[in-house]
């Protein structure tokens, strides 16, 4: 394991990108920060810029307008960077799979610019905060 990957496993800072979600995954992501779940205890922190992030939390299937912005956010994040596809829409577009304004799930868009990107999936509509925390823990253990 390179020291870069090892460093990712300690208190990951995450950045949240909404690429066309319905707000649900987003409020559950924020919910992880608030007193009942309080992930900041573990050093997991939401940061305001992808340049500070170790991981991107992407919610929502990617719409035509959001795709270039997601790619830019990914390119700005320092590598290695873990991308978490949070929720059914981000994993495989979910109920919006036939929408004319959707360009694809998150992994497809990210893999177009970086075929070796590390992508983790947290399914659910919306995933419960417990599921998100478990997803982050398991992804970090697998690194």
């Amino acid at each position: 394991m390179s020291w870069k990957r090892w460093s990712l496993k300690r208190s990951p800072w995450v950045f949240h990108v909404n690429t066309g979600a319905c707000n649900n995954c987003d409020i559950e992501v924020v919910d992880c920060l608030t007193p009942r779940f309080d992930v900041e205890r573990f050093g997991i922190k939401l940061v305001g810029s992808p340049r500070h992030a170790d991981a991107l939390l992407v919610t929502g299937g990617v719409t035509r307008q959001a795709a270039p912005r997601l790619i830019r956010a990914y390119q700005q994040a320092p590598k290695p960077c873990v991308v978490f596809a949070i929720g059914a829409c981000a994993c495989d577009l979910g109920i919006f799979h036939s929408g004319y304004h959707m360009v694809g799930p998150v992994d497809k868009i990210i893999r177009e610019v970086d075929p070796h990107a590390i992508i983790a999936y947290v399914p659910g509509c919306p995933p419960k905060p417990e599921a998100m925390i478990s997803g982050v823990v398991r992804a970090l253990a697998a690194l």
Partner: peptide, 14 residues
């Protein structure tokens, strides 16, 4: 100008 960078975690949608 569409700054994707400064998205705040509490900001929910684009």
């Amino acid at each position: 100008v569409l700054p994707v960078g400064p998205v705040h975690p509490l900001q929910e949608e684009m």
